[in-house]
Design a protein around this nucleic acid. Structure first.
Lengths: 322, 322
DNA sequence: ATATGTAATTGAAACGTTTCAATTATAAGT
DNA sequence: ACTTATAATTGAAACGTTTCAATTACATAT
């Protein structure tokens, strides 16, 4: 691997000049630059990113840290983030991990967007700093260098309860995800609160736990139906994937959706409208969410004062599954 | 940001000892190690990844370079890669880019898996080396430090043609993706070749181009149906997403699937079996593909001789869309 | 007490850049 | 021709680690 020193020798200039040439500095003449660039091509010189980062003390890379790549939910959000990051001339890396990721703890990124319930609050508050601002999407953290951008989860399930209520569904069930998920628990909370507010009785027997995947939704609903012969007229699910699994289980059990049991989801995945039956759900502006997160992060990097983190709106999408 | 020097001072040891302590070397006594670790906690020391990488001349990170995050196809594959990478104690970063990505060209990764038709062959062959082996998934490149692991695209569409033929479909149409996609073009080639082999006449009027997304599939089929009043009895689509779009367009046009037009996909996305009608498609072992790619890359990193790249199998999944 | 071997610690160089400060070359003004 | 200003080039330090080679500390054997 040729280094800048090799390049300098090849072009018979100093290392400094070589550096200026490859970085397009205006301090040197056009001729020297061209001479160096030509030599660079000849020996196949490529700058070494590690050295560059070390010297400049920054990477111009922002990291998105997820708990996993599974599921169709994240892709729109990533697109949103990616668009913003590119437009600012930065690079983006997506990392999945359990509790920690070397790129984050060894400061290999200039900023981070976190959507990873495996990472605990302590690690994040410890790591966040002027040099490593963060936007967290899956919790609320009070820290000078952390911004929270959360989804309107509670408002979402509340809207669903209201909608179902208006359709005279007064016996409700809820399929929740993992208890570790902030978003999931907020959705559950919105549901419970609203049910209480509307005096809709809710029995914990009709609270099912799954893990946000279609399969887990199927399995959980399957077991549930085998155990209970009396069931609600409508089931709210904490996300679309589980809702689809639940609907498939209900159908396989010989019941009809929505006639016997209505089912609602949350997220409004792009495929949900093509499901059979098309899924009533809460639209989550995933891409917008990503854009907003990234823009906020760049505001922090730019040391902007008074960073605004506007709320995302809720929209119920009524379809045939109710 | 406290450095190793700060840590050494705080713990009243040399920089070397501090380094040994944080890296768990057995050259120092238990007591000194503990003393240093305690000091590290106190001042909040974190090793600087950039310096580490520079000195060690490696990152223990492997990069997956994609053309975009869009679409549900990649997630299973990423999971496969990720599993392998983690099991080897490496980190994985996923990068989307147009023609180049700084992390790749500045050697910020120890190895790369490429699935990005935007990157041209020249760049890749120039970059691949002993220190940066690559596995490419979307083309075939002959280079000492590049392994190709491609999908059984041609075999896939050939199987579909055979299947449709056995169902007496002799008027076929094909919805292809972007011409830049190797996989897409191979799928098309398999189709064309097999049709010729079976003496099934094919008219280029029934070759539609879209760009692999559901929306583009819908639009393309919509325009097609408005233009042609005579159409094939079956349409092969180069992937499932376009197939779903095409089916929706056909339905919106007042025709029935599969009665009026049968439609097949390619990929077997997890949602495809729940589509209405369930999609006949070719199963692509996406996760297995990822695992195989990552394992091959580690074989290269380990300078293993005689690297085996076994082929992936094809499996036609008959469902109601035919 | 002295030599000998091993364990623990340390100093200093190196990794490949960037960039400040210093130097040299070139042009312009008298 | 000589100063002065500006442009172009360069030397050297620094970024924060790792690790080789050298040193010191300590125990054991003579």
């Amino acid at each position: 691997m040729p280094t800048l020193k090799d390049l300098a020798k090849k072009a018979s200039v100093s290392v400094t000049t070589a550096s200026y040439a490859v970085n397009g500095s205006s301090l040197i003449t056009k001729e020297t630059r061209e001479k160096v660039l030509k030599a660079a091509k000849e020996i196949g010189y490529r700058p070494n990113g590690m050295a560059k980062n070390l010297k400049k003390q920054k990477t111009e890379t922002i990291g998105l840290f997820l708990s996993g790549f599974t599921g169709p939910f994240f892709t729109s959000m990533m697109e949103g983030i990616h668009e913003v990051v590119m437009s600012r001339g930065y690079e983006m890396v997506v990392c999945a991990s359990v509790d920690r990721h070397r790129l984050l703890i060894e400061k290999n990124v200039d900023g981070a967007i976190i959507l990873n319930y495996h990472m605990d609050d302590e690690l994040l508050t410890e790591l966040a700093s002027e040099k490593l601002p963060m936007v967290v999407l899956d919790r609320e953290l009070d820290h000078q260098h952390i911004c929270n951008i959360t989804l309107p989860n509670q408002a979402g399930t509340k809207a669903v309860v209201d909608y179902l209520n208006s359709k005279n569904h007064t016996h409700l069930g809820f399929m929740a995800g993992s208890e570790e998920s902030y978003d999931g628990e907020m959705r559950l909370k919105g549901f419970l609160d609203r049910a209480r507010e509307l005096d809709i009785p809710f029995n914990r027997d009709h609270l099912i736990r799954a893990d946000f995947t279609e399969k887990s939704g199927y399995d959980a609903m399957h077991t549930y139906l085998n155990k209970n012969e009396i069931y609600p007229t409508a089931f709210l699910c904490a996300n679309d994937e589980m809702a689809m699994g639940a609907i498939n289980a209900i159908k396989d059990h010989g019941l009809k959706v929505p006639e016997d049991i209505a089912v609602t989801g949350f997220d409004n995945l792009s495929i949900s409208k093509y499901f059979n039956p098309p899924l009533t759900t809460v639209h989550v502006p995933k891409k917008q969410w990503g854009i907003h997160a990234a823009e906020t992060l760049f505001d922090m990097l730019g040391k902007k004062e008074n960073i605004q983190t506007s709320d995302l709106g809720v929209e119920l999408i009524p379809r045939d599954s109710v």
